[in-house]
């Protein structure tokens, strides 16, 4: 009797622990989107991702209330030539840090639904391979302002 009553609890606890171990934890640091000239249909968003979990994970997609679509892009500069291309994922090794920054990997905001406004943060949803999705309030930063402001 005792065994049969505690079994479901034990099972639940076990499942919870298992689920907890399987979920990678992703910390998002300092997200921001770039203010662009009003007629520009595109912008880019940058942030730092830290996988604090014990399992590898990946950023596999994103969306924004500010744009028709959001794509993962990488850039590489060699011999004065910049190439940009779309990728399907940004890998986040366990304990690793991945920086999306100006001049490097970034989230491309395509088809802005309205000009970005420094007074109005946008909402960015990040989808991961394992970790739960996260919706962030992302400030719009004016690239002309001094760094750090």
């Amino acid at each position: 009797m005792t065994v049969s009553r505690s079994l479901p609890y034990g099972l639940c606890l076990g499942l919870t622990l298992f689920a907890g171990a399987a979920l990678a934890e992703i910390k998002v640091i300092e997200p921001w989107a770039r203010l662009q000239p009003p007629s520009s249909p595109m912008s880019a968003a940058f942030l730092v991702l830290e996988n604090t979990g014990a399992e590898p994970d990946a950023l596999i997609g994103a969306s924004c209330d500010c744009a028709q679509s959001v794509e993962l892009h990488v850039m590489a500069e060699t011999d004065g030539k910049m190439t940009m291309r779309q990728v399907q994922r940004f890998d986040l090794p366990a304990g690793g840090r991945f920086e999306l920054k100006s001049g490097g990997p970034h989230l491309m905001l395509i088809g802005l639904t309205a000009p970005l406004d420094p007074a109005k943060p946008v909402h960015l949803k990040l989808l991961f391979g394992h970790a739960p999705e996260q919706t962030l309030e992302v400030p719009v930063r004016d690239p002309r302002a001094p760094a750090g402001s």
Binding site: R34, Q36, S40, P41, M42, S43, A44, M75, M82, M84, S102, G103, H106, M108, L109, P143
Partner: peptide, 8 residues
């Protein structure tokens, strides 16, 4: 339409 290099 270049979102990063040209603004930079």
């Amino acid at each position: 339409s270049c979102p990063d290099v040209c603004p930079r």
